[in-house]
Design a protein around this nucleic acid. Structure first.
Lengths: 106, 106
DNA sequence: TTATATTTGGACAATTATTGTCAAGACTTA
DNA sequence: TAAGTCTTGACAATAATTGTCCAAATATAA
């Protein structure tokens, strides 16, 4: 298991391993190159529909990319928190609670 | 350990156990009563500076309220996700990674 | 060095989301 | 009815996000 990277770092690695210039990937994704540059450096959030395109371009696992993408959003909420581990634990319990509520709805 | 509630549900319980009308709590918190009503029913997000006031009004633990508040935001991101547990796990690893990066900065 | 390619920074308008506020409706209890 | 409580929907004001452009910075090659 590798040390976890942000979505942007993962993206940059995929691109650089492929030797593809940022400008070209931006064109393939149909976004501005400066936007892509910012996404790779975690200055902006990616758009979820990039994931499909990326998995096709780099033959990367879609689900992994998705998890990386969503977890980034969670991280963003917690980075300045002290008790991030506690928060994650409580969040997990709440999700259980809310999902069970859904299925047992009248 | 009780089943986890949302921040709004916790808030409503605190208020009702105290027998305080919504209108009055809204006044104490200096927000509109309709806003408070929506917060208690998870229709709107609470404002973080409510936490301080709430802990004073109801003599509730500030840290617990804070954790409940922030975890709600995390839950909100994940409620429609299939692999929420995986995402939380990855998020936790990323936070570790990013925090260690911070401390080892040149 | 110069020339060329690549990446980054900052500013901007357009769009979208959030917030605070209000008034009316619904519900309950007396 | 009347009074108290809570909820609903609408709205404007504000804030956040997004997409875009272009110039500045950086890197690469000749």
């Amino acid at each position: 298991m590798v040390t976890q990277q942000t979505f942007g770092e993962t993206l940059r690695k995929l691109r650089e391993d492929d030797g593809m210039p940022l400008r070209k990937l931006a064109a393939l994704l149909d976004i501005d190159q400066s936007t892509l540059s910012k996404i790779e450096r975690n200055e902006r959030k990616a758009n979820p529909d990039m994931i499909d395109k990326l998995s096709k371009i780099f033959k990367a696992d879609k689900k992994e990319l998705h998890i990386s993408f969503v977890s980034d959003k969670v991280v963003y909420e917690l980075l300045d928190e002290e008790s991030s581990v506690d928060i994650l634990k409580v969040a997990e319990e709440k999700i259980e609670y809310l999902k069970s509520k859904r299925t047992t709805r009248k």
